[in-house]
Computed example of a mutant assay.
Amino acid sequence: MRKDLHEANRLSWNAATIAHNSHKGDQAAFFRNGGSTLFPEELELLGDVAGLSLLHLQCNAGQDSLSLARLGADVTGVDISDEAIAFARRLSDESGIPARFEREDLFTWLEQAARDRRLFDRVFTSYGTICWLSDLDRWASGLAGVLKPGGRFAFIEFHPFAMVFNEQWQPHYDYFRSAPVEEDGVGDYVAQSGDGLTPGASEVGVVDFRNPHRSYEFYWGVGDVVSALIRAGLILERMVEFPYANGWRGFDGMRDIGGRRMAPPESMPRIPLMYGLVANQRSSAHVTVDHGVGGPDQDPR
């Protein structure tokens, strides 16, 4: 585990979070008016959360956490970024949607929560999360340690296959990278994605953001994730892949195919850009693998 790199990422995220939220307009008003930042794919994986305790790991600035709380969940959000948690707490107060937010390194938080026997009906994490984690086995065992018997872990993430390409869709990066990769810092992907990641009023905000803090990413394949969850004793119930990315315009020429789902240019073959899974604490389960079930622009064959 590389907590030194986690700490570097905390500083980078603190700077980036300010830039990200500068583009999103009056978010409190957006929520007071009934807004939600959730996508249908997340809700399908989570199931009905009304009346359930829900742990949102790497919750960022709390927008999805508050959207889940509005659905009736008792939400606890955890993130390493001071700026993100401070913003989430303000947004909760100003929107009138109750949720608790706690700042801590993920591994430290999970270990302490397990010692304190803090258990949850649902654990949720989404989009650009595991690339910041230096130890997947510790992550998976931590999840297992805070799930109630019969509890569900719902996970949705950008597909690691897509990360083989550079922004011009040229194969460039090794899928099987094993060492952490040093980057220029967390970028302003919200500005890059435009209205894809600003479902409320969009503003120009910070222009030409340059992060003063370096960041470090860890690359995990689908097999790494699934195997870590199985080793932790969780049962994989479902896995699904999608030929689009929710909200994120990470590559040249990405087009909105409806519902802020971003797909490659029409000239390209469809590839997996996102995947999700459900794992639980039941005594038995079976694995089903879908390819883009429930989404638009899909080949029915």
Rank of each mutant, 00 (worst) to 15 (best):
Y244F: 13
V207L: 06
C131Q: 13
L71V: 09
G34Q: 08
E203H: 10
L136E: 05
D4K: 02
P243F: 06
R210E: 12
I18T: 11
Q298E: 12
M268R: 15
G276I: 09
H23I: 02
L43S: 09
A191K: 03
W109K: 09
Y219K: 06
L54A: 08
P199R: 02
G294H: 08
P40H: 01
N246M: 08
R282E: 13
V181S: 03
C59A: 13
A15Q: 03
R301F: 13
Y219W: 09
S283G: 07
R115D: 12
G96W: 08
N9D: 11
A140R: 00
L57I: 15
W13M: 01
A84H: 00
V186T: 10
D188S: 07
S267I: 07
Q112M: 04
L46Y: 13
L277Y: 12
P243R: 05
F101S: 02
Y216N: 03
F155G: 00
N166R: 04
L147D: 10
Q168C: 12
F155H: 14
L45P: 10
L38G: 06
C59R: 02
A232I: 04
V222P: 00
R32E: 05
G150S: 11
S284D: 13
E217N: 11
G128V: 07
F251V: 02
I97A: 06
G150K: 02
L197Q: 01
D184M: 06
I97R: 04
A228N: 07
H23P: 03
I130A: 00
M274I: 04
L236M: 07
L234Q: 04
P180K: 07
H23S: 03
W220V: 04
I130W: 02
Y173V: 00
H20T: 04
D137M: 05
Q170M: 09
R117Q: 11
L147F: 10
